[in-house]
Design a protein around this nucleic acid. Structure first.
Lengths: 106, 106
DNA sequence: TCAAACCTTGACCCTGGTGTCAAGGTCAAG
DNA sequence: CTTGACCTTGACACCAGGGTCAAGGTTTGA
């Protein structure tokens, strides 16, 4: 999607035709982005954490990371953990309800 | 929010004034709804799973549950688990990246 | 050469979840 | 009674993520 490009999530090289030329790594990233969007993350959060997600043919860079970036990543990590906790708690509630239902009908 | 009421997530009794009268249980539900919305769930999913989330002063009902409802809940439970897996995987990737950074700078 | 198939951009429209604002009804205090 | 604070509804506008469609350029193949 051009939307992702406009948001700075992916970059595309342009041929002399002005046609977009997606690298293999970019296609892998698109998969990751769709997965994360489907999981409820916003493009802002995805853009923040994308650099530390390994994708095929696109090694992670560890040098020259700003302290500001590190604190932002720590914050996103914690927010992800909170989000996971909320979802897990409610998933467990649904699961418990279902097992209770089965216990009563069994 | 009236939005939640329009979506069928909460109900409000009306006094003779036509003013909304939120019960204590409803206020608790609003908290849950906000939490789930913040975690990236849609109001449709929330409406589906709300009935099996216990809230203060509002016991869960186990009788007269349609088989259709049960399968819907099982589906939502599985979708929640998928979502949690995606988030946990990426959270771990961020965390691993951060520890690797610290290892290199330490 | 010429048409079909593809790409580009830009302009729209749509759905969800929110915020705000105006026009009116209701209530309590002065 | 009157003023101000609250509530109601409906109509907006907003942002995010996405889809579609027209107008124009490019490539490919007949």
């Amino acid at each position: 999607m051009r939307f992702y490009e406009a948001k700075g999530l992916i970059t595309s090289a342009r041929g002399p035709n002005n046609y977009r030329d997606y690298s293999e790594a970019t296609l892998g990233r698109v998969q990751q982005i769709r997965e994360l969007l489907g999981a409820g993350l916003s493009t802002q959060v995805i853009r923040a954490i994308l650099p530390c997600l390994d994708s095929p043919r696109d090694p992670i860079v560890f040098e020259g990371v700003l302290p500001e970036t590190v604190t932002a990543l720590e914050r996103e990590r914690d927010r992800l953990t909170e989000r996971i906790d909320v979802l897990a708690r409610n998933r467990d509630a649904v699961a418990d309800y279902l097992t209770e239902l089965q216990k009563r009908s069994g």
